[in-house]
Amino acid sequence: MTQYIGKPISRVDGLEKVTGKAKYAAEFDTPDLLYGYVVNSTIAKGKIKQIDATKALSLAGVIQVFTHENRPKLAWFDMNYKDQDAPPGSPFRPLRDAKIKYNAQPIALVVAETFELARYAASLVQVDYEEEAHETNLQANRHKARKPSLGMASLLKPPPPKPRGNFEEAFKEAPVQMTGEYVHSMEHHNPMELFASTVVYEKGRNKSGARYTIYDKTQGVTNSVLYVSQVFDIPFKNLQVLSPYVGGGFGSGLRPQYQLFLAVMAAES
């Protein structure tokens, strides 16, 4: 192993990557491809009083604007929205209801014939909110901290190693003692390739015959398959998730992100 560390290694995928031939999730051209643009909430907490997509829908080439009011009926139970890496608690369900739980929450999806048109139409969606006071300062709320509850994922993971030695004792006897509190800046995943899903929908003879080929920016295709299958009630055999290249993830690509949900929902409708 050590003979490889710190040394450049020629990669099998190198040729595709240096010639621009490596294809990522948003790069699979398909006939009659439609584009989705997300409308994000502009408040951190509260609820949507009214969401008006009339102006957006008046533009020729805008196909649909999905909101919590007109989204298709989907799986009801929280369980169905839990992916393999989901933390404990109630999972986020895009377009579930009028509630705003965080700033920039996806609250509508505009589907149009071009990306530019979808982006423009999204800016025409008018939203009225009932705003509630939010608390976003983690430091100021530390006194409310509690131990996280154990979820499914934590049961599957190995327990932390047993403590070794005796810290208290050793520290007490240390010739020099220093205590301090350090706060580091916010860290984000920020992969180069942003999240994208391309869904190729092929009609079947009946609903259960429809086929879905999904190009998803994910580090775990099986997790995406499981999620889509549970939420949309699609049999595994009709579902294929492909992710030939991932433009970085740093952990953010492990779990199905909301664009996967929105793209499948739009394709199915």
Binding site: P8, G14, K17, V18, G247
Partner: peptide, 13 residues
Amino acid sequence: FIDHDAFQCGYCT
């Protein structure tokens, strides 16, 4: 870029 392993995910390449 291939010889010097000047990428990993390849998206910026």
